[in-house]
Amino acid sequence: MGFMDRLLRRTSRLDEASGEATQRTTPVQAISSQTGEGEGLPDRWYAPQDGSRDRFVGADGLPTLRLIPYRDMGGEYVLRLCEDDTGLLVGPTDRRLPRAGIYISQLRGEAHHQAECRAGNFHPGDPVRLVREPENPYDPNAVAVYDATGQYMAAYVNKQKARTLARLIDSGTEVEAISIRGTRPGVGCDQVAVLAASPDVLRHLLSQRPAGAPRPAHER
């Protein structure tokens, strides 16, 4: 069982065992928010746009972030970035993430691949394959996303992120990816989102948060 699976199971047990824990992870009521990526989440939960382009880059060159399990407003468990020293969340469209070597994309076209989405494993935290399609007639920068077996295609990286990822992949840069939103095989899958990064960065993001780090903002 992977680290993120253990975290998700631990969070589920907290929900069952404690009313307080359930309150912390229950989807919040809609609150107007810009920082919350249009999800209606409180701004105070998110790292502010403070003008620091390298806010998420540590002295060692690795991100000052980790991935944590998070239950969205629809009750679905996903993975979300959390800042080490503040516990603040970081939205998937934060423009500072590429500076830290992190590329997140909500996929496009899942509706055309429903059977494959259901058959493949796109569970949060599990690896996925990025496959370039330079001959794609609709987009020469197209990047398709398959499950780890390479058999089942979920959809395509959105065009804006595909340009960046295509350039990295075509240059020979090693890029790995995981699902941060999706489902296990046999479960209907309406939305898939992926996070791509170098192997070192991805391994770092999946590691446990530092000892003594503040609790994630949405759990306080």
Rank of each mutant, 00 (worst) to 15 (best):
143 V>E: 10
144 A>M: 07
144 A>Q: 10
144 A>V: 04
145 V>G: 09
145 V>L: 04
145 V>R: 09
145 V>Q: 10
145 V>D: 04
145 V>P: 14
146 Y>Q: 08
146 Y>L: 04
146 Y>D: 11
146 Y>S: 07
147 D>I: 01
148 A>I: 02
148 A>H: 14
149 T>C: 07
149 T>S: 15
149 T>V: 02
150 G>H: 04
151 Q>T: 08
151 Q>H: 11
152 Y>T: 05
152 Y>D: 01
153 M>C: 10
153 M>G: 05
153 M>S: 09
154 A>R: 13
154 A>T: 13
155 A>H: 10
156 Y>T: 01
158 N>V: 03
158 N>I: 02
159 K>H: 06
160 Q>T: 13
161 K>I: 03
161 K>M: 08
161 K>H: 08
161 K>P: 09
162 A>F: 04
162 A>H: 13
163 R>H: 11
163 R>S: 09
163 R>T: 11
163 R>V: 11
164 T>K: 13
164 T>M: 02
164 T>R: 13
165 L>N: 11
166 A>Y: 12
166 A>L: 04
166 A>E: 14
166 A>H: 15
167 R>S: 14
168 L>N: 14
168 L>P: 14
168 L>C: 07
168 L>F: 12
168 L>T: 10
168 L>Y: 12
170 D>W: 00
170 D>I: 03
170 D>C: 02
170 D>S: 14
170 D>T: 12
170 D>M: 06
170 D>L: 03
171 S>C: 04
172 G>V: 05
172 G>T: 05
172 G>C: 04
173 T>I: 02
173 T>G: 09
174 E>M: 03
174 E>D: 10
174 E>N: 06
174 E>F: 01
175 V>K: 13
175 V>L: 08
175 V>S: 11
176 E>F: 02
176 E>S: 14
176 E>H: 10
176 E>L: 00
176 E>K: 15
177 A>F: 02
177 A>G: 10
177 A>Y: 07
177 A>I: 02
179 S>Y: 01
179 S>L: 03
180 I>V: 15
180 I>Q: 09
180 I>L: 05
181 R>F: 00
182 G>H: 11
183 T>C: 15
183 T>S: 15
183 T>H: 15
184 R>Y: 00
185 P>S: 10
185 P>V: 04
185 P>R: 09
185 P>Q: 05
186 G>K: 13
186 G>Y: 06
187 V>K: 15
187 V>M: 05
187 V>A: 05
188 G>S: 09
188 G>I: 01
188 G>F: 02
188 G>H: 05
191 Q>E: 07
191 Q>R: 14
191 Q>D: 06
191 Q>H: 11
192 V>L: 02
193 A>L: 03
193 A>K: 08
193 A>F: 02
194 V>T: 14
194 V>A: 08
195 L>C: 08
196 A>Y: 00
196 A>W: 01
196 A>S: 08
196 A>C: 04
197 A>L: 01
197 A>I: 03
197 A>N: 01
197 A>Y: 01
197 A>G: 07
